[in-house]
Simulated assay, not measured.
Amino acid sequence: ALWKGSKQRKKYMSRRQTFMSNIDSVVKIQSLFRMLAARKNYLSRLQYFRDHKNEIVKIQSLLRANKARDNYKILVGSENPSLTVIRKFVHLLDQSDLDFQEELEVARLREEVVTKIRANQQLEKDLNLMDLKIGLLVKNRITLE
């Protein structure tokens, strides 16, 4: 055992000395193997993504839709929404002349609808009154006969 340990130690020191004298080469070889392993991992992951492209796109769109919905809820429901949320919806605040004209048209149509509803209500009242009067006239005629 003393022989087997001494011999082993000499072997170990010799090997260590070889590595130390060639440390640059050892580091290059290690980095090459690490690069090859990382490349293999990257390529297999890339192939997985290519194989499942449709599912990934669906998941991404769902996540984006949920995030947009949450941001919109924050924008509408919160008293002080964050600046990032406001930035995402600032394009909705841009108003052009066309938007202004459309808003005026909507307001005009709304007023027109309100006046027509009131006119219809008045016509219904008049119709009910006439119906009542016709009923009374028929009743009077029957009593006269």
Rank of each mutant, 00 (worst) to 15 (best):
L43D: 12
D126S: 09
L92K: 07
E124N: 03
I56F: 13
S21I: 06
D51T: 08
Q122K: 02
D24F: 15
L32H: 11
V26G: 07
E112S: 10
V76T: 08
Y48Q: 14
F100D: 14
L92D: 00
I29T: 08
L75E: 00
K58H: 09
D99T: 01
S82H: 05
T84M: 09
R108Q: 09
A38E: 15
D99Y: 09
L127E: 03
A119I: 04
V76R: 01
V26H: 10
N22E: 03
R39Q: 12
L46V: 13
L36E: 11
R108G: 01
N128K: 01
D24H: 15
E105K: 02
N41A: 13
V27E: 04
L43G: 07
Y42Q: 07
V85I: 01
N120Q: 08
I23T: 09
L129T: 00
M130W: 06
N66V: 09
E103D: 06
N120L: 09
D24M: 15
S61F: 15
L32D: 08
N41D: 04
Q121G: 02
L104G: 12
D99I: 12
K73F: 03
N41V: 13
K88S: 06
L32E: 15
Q122R: 03
K28Y: 11
E55F: 10
I59Q: 10
A107V: 12
V85L: 01
Y72N: 06
P81A: 01
Q30N: 05
L75H: 03
T84D: 15
A68Q: 07
S61Q: 12
N41E: 02
R39I: 14
A107H: 08
R69V: 10
Q121W: 04
M35Q: 11
V114W: 05
H91L: 10
D70I: 13
S31A: 08
E112Y: 08
V113L: 02
S82A: 00
I56D: 02
L75W: 00
D70H: 09
I23K: 13
K73Q: 03
R39H: 14
L93E: 14
L123N: 04
D126N: 05
V90K: 04
E105W: 07
Y48C: 14
D97P: 11
L46P: 13
F19Y: 01
G77L: 02
M35D: 05
Q121C: 00
E124A: 02
Y48H: 13
E55A: 06
V57H: 11
H52T: 10
E124R: 09
V57Q: 13
L98I: 15
E124C: 01
F33C: 15
K53W: 06
M20G: 02
R110N: 02
S25E: 12
M35A: 14
E105I: 04
S82I: 01
A65L: 05
K28I: 09
N128Y: 06
Y42K: 11
R110H: 05
N66R: 05
K116Q: 01
K53L: 08
L32Y: 14
F100N: 04
R39K: 13
R118Q: 07
R34G: 05
S44A: 13
V76N: 01
L32G: 06
D99C: 06
F49S: 07
N22Y: 02
Q95I: 13
A119S: 03
E55T: 05
E79I: 05
N71A: 08
D99W: 09
M130G: 03
K40G: 00
Y72I: 10
G77V: 04
R108F: 10
A68P: 00
N80I: 11
K40Y: 15
Q30A: 08
I59E: 04
R118E: 12
R108L: 14
S78M: 02
